[in-house]
Design a protein around this nucleic acid. Structure first.
Lengths: 339, 339
DNA sequence: TAAATTTGCAAAAACGTTTTCGTAAAAACG
DNA sequence: CGTTTTTACGAAAACGTTTTTGCAAATTTA
């Protein structure tokens, strides 16, 4: 039904090759012919078929987005959509197609990322929510498919990365806590194997040590970035130590901070009256909960945008692979009090 | 690099047509040959190229999702991502490809939806965030591309629709207000031309009239589903009438309810002490704000899922086009008090 | 057993592009 | 003016599938 390149060619009295050259701004064509072709294109309301182009052309403009958590339903902890927002902002500005591959943590039979990409002639992929040890990710890197990982600090052949400077940001918020005279800290950490957990821990330790303090292993609670686990662990911690061991909880995500706050309240204590709490991420609800959460704001939309931009660069020139640091901001609200 | 259907054919000693028949479960093939083909497929690690299939096959498994608001950044009012979540849940269960077309309300030069679909050999589209009068939508319907619209009650040739029963839900929440002795209501309405606005207004009126009450035009404030506009209008309304005219604000979205609550507070009044407020949607933050908002919960993930399922049905059999009603639930929280 | 039907597959034609190759005509050169 | 180079284009070969067509061989029917 729709006009094809053949229709345009016939209408303009040229060959399809010439039409293609006109569309793609190639050299081998005279200005007059080009104009004639464009006139026909307009008259017939022709638009190139993206699928056919994808098949024929070696260099595709398809990028893949591999995102975990999309299929899970968590009412608050939906970070992926902001990334997507940023990614789409870039791709719609730059005429890139995107294919989303929602991975499910539960589903065992996930398809290999590489397979997903090859099936779709994908030029490169943005990956979020994975750990460094992910086997499918390794396979993707080995296949030399350009990719950008979010929040995993690694740079390699055709692989770049975008994240905030987790070390610096964590040090900064810890400094803030210490400057408010909190010397006994309890860390609510994420998944033990996640790169962000390692980095944020490093930042917290840097701050603590440069202030002549230290954190015992007993005061690091790994909670897998889960609100429920954080609730449970903090509750146990307080029931065990009461107010003797820590005055503040340094949480590696807002979600876990929310769990911590709930636990503190359910133990009969108040925030920030009895315990101070900090988060990380600044998810939308963090400014609405009570007390409003002091946290590190990551602009995930920006991070998404930067990822897409970096990926495009790497696709065009593999030597562009690098670590891009996104901005962050310490949001001082009311979940921390000065001692 | 990757194995193609030709490699498999050669390896299995058959023609590519036979391989295709094996993959697609066609009849004209003997069990033995089929098995041999599958063995080769496995050995070579072959997966059919989605792009090539899309080009060749008449019946594609690509669906389009046309969604407004994706490119805009509103920190709270992000309903699209839940729809997407539901849609992807269905499509990953049913092996459908999805292409997202983020439309921007501001961008004048939007591409026609039809063009978007035809470029991508799209079998059908899910559309959200449009008004009935949208010209591109009309074009899509005329092109007889199967589609499902969310929140626009219209059923036609190859076009179905998914929404909650806005009339019934609005009547229900208004009934609740009236049963709490609120007889003087002010309606915070959405965009005047939006179908949901009309329906919800109808529901409110039904409830009001069956209770022997009525609503004057002066007590209907159109706020375009915007928090800011709702704030402004409610503020003006209260400054003009004080507490004489209405005791409760019936808002057609939670976002506008948040604006209304802010306005009430800034006028020196309290919710629900001086004014009661209800919302619609039950966005995640609604249970966290203070007071927690009494509202209608729409399960947008479910709505997304249903939309995709309905679209698939319509694609397979155009006579399946109909209006599917999704569940809703009155969430009674603390923004309404009994008089 | 001859004729008709069915089965199982190969061959080849799409699908709508991009890209390579070849070659007249035009332009530049010596 | 003859020769080389460049320009501008057509023809045709990919790209990796699905789908149509055709045809032997096997099976059923009469």
């Amino acid at each position: 039904m729709a006009a094809t390149i053949h229709d345009v060619a016939k209408h303009a009295g040229v060959s399809i090759g010439t039409v293609s050259r006109a569309i793609n701004n190639y050299k081998d064509i005279s200005p007059e012919t080009k104009e004639r072709v464009f006139k026909s294109i307009k008259e017939l309301g022709y638009t190139p078929n993206v699928i056919a182009r994808g098949l024929s052309s070696k260099t595709t403009s398809n990028i893949g987005v591999i995102v975990s958590g999309l299929l899970d339903s968590n009412r608050f902890d939906n970070l992926w959509y902001m990334l997507l927002q940023g990614i789409y902002r870039y791709t719609s500005e730059n005429d890139l197609e995107v294919a989303i591959y929602p991975t499910n943590s539960k589903e065992q039979t996930r398809k290999s990322y590489t397979k997903f990409c090859k099936e779709r002639n994908i030029a490169g992929a943005i990956i979020s929510g994975i750990t460094i040890t992910d086997v499918y990710f390794k396979e993707l890197v080995n296949a030399e498919i350009p990719c950008v990982v979010i929040d995993v600090p690694m740079v390699g052949k055709k692989v770049g990365c975008v994240s905030v400077d987790n070390i610096k940001a964590s040090a900064e918020i810890t400094d803030y806590l210490i400057s408010n005279n909190h010397t006994k800290l309890c860390v609510i950490a994420g998944k033990k194997t996640a790169a962000v957990t390692l980095d944020r821990m490093k930042g917290i330790n840097q701050s603590v040590m440069s202030n002549g303090l230290q954190i015992d292993d007993e005061d690091i609670l790994y909670c897998d970035f889960s609100q429920e686990i954080a609730y449970k662990n903090v509750r146990e911690y307080i029931e065990k130590h009461d107010k003797s061991r820590a005055t503040a909880f340094v949480c590696m995500s807002d979600i876990m901070a929310m769990g911590a706050i709930d636990a503190i309240k359910d133990c009969g204590y108040s925030v920030p009256g009895d315990f101070s709490v900090t988060g990380f991420d600044d998810i939308p609800v963090s400014q609405l909960i009570s007390p409003a959460l002091t946290t590190i704001r990551q602009d995930l939309i920006q991070i998404g945008y930067e990822s897409a931009a970096l990926l495009k660069k790497i696709i065009d020139d593999p030597s562009e692979a690098k670590h891009v640091y996104a901005q962050y901001q310490l949001m001082i609200r009311s979940s921390v009090r000065s001692l």
